[in-house]
């Protein structure tokens, strides 16, 4: 029954409209106000930060990658009006909130050491040679607080200082390299995974 099967495809397309063709105002009931780089926009409640910015008219080149929480491109920092705390979020994985004011950080200047993996031996030496600044760690835990993946960043840096490669690899495994750990570090540890 061709008509029927065609009809199914139409129904599926209709139900997916909001994530495929952009959001139509007439479908929206609840609105909130957020501020993007200091300018206020009225956006539908319930969207992610990324969807809300697109609704407002932004078309991403930077600060957008996989749109699924794997790539670390959409690094965002924000506050909520009336709250002193600086919060961090992946724009593609975080709902907008009333009173959110935000900016994105599309790039983190960070150092990366070069090495020959066949010549490294597990232990403390490689870390001290390649990333000696890890000894500067103050133990303030700012890095851990900034991580969107709930990685215990400070703990894996500590493991590195002890030369415990296995633990360091295990603890840092879920890293998506979004960079805010390095940006927030008061001791200027310059690497991020």
């Amino acid at each position: 029954m061709p008509e029927k099967d065609n009809n199914i495809m139409d129904k599926i397309a209709e139900s997916n409209k909001s994530v495929v063709t952009g959001i139509d105002e007439k479908d929206i009931e609840h609105w909130i106000t957020i501020s993007i780089l200091g300018s206020e926009y009225k956006v539908p409640a319930g969207l992610t930060i990324m969807q809300a910015m697109e609704f407002a008219g932004y078309r991403f080149v930077r600060s957008c990658g996989c749109r699924a929480g794997f790539c670390g491109a959409c690094t965002t920092v924000y506050r909520i009006v009336g709250d002193y705390r600086l919060k961090t979020a992946m724009a593609c994985q975080t709902r907008v909130e009333q009173g959110m004011y935000l900016t994105q950080i599309p790039f983190t200047p960070a150092e990366r050491a070069n090495y020959d993996i066949d010549k490294l031996s597990p232990g403390i030496e490689p870390f001290l040679t390649l990333y000696p600044e890890i000894l500067r760690c103050l133990g303030c835990n700012s890095c851990t607080k900034a991580c969107p993946q709930d990685i215990d960043v400070m703990e894996y840096i500590a493991a590195g200082k002890r030369g415990d490669v296995a633990l360091m690899a295990e603890l840092s495994f879920d890293c998506i390299q979004w960079g805010l750990c390095a940006m927030r570090c008061p001791a200027e540890l310059a690497q991020y995974n």
Binding site: T21, G22, I23, D24, E25, Q51, E54, F55, A56, G57, Y58, R59, F60, V61
Partner: peptide, 14 residues
């Protein structure tokens, strides 16, 4: 190159 997900109201006034 890239898709376009901008809101319909904004696009209409671009």
């Amino acid at each position: 190159l890239l898709p376009d997900y901008r809101g319909k109201a904004v696009l209409a006034r671009m």
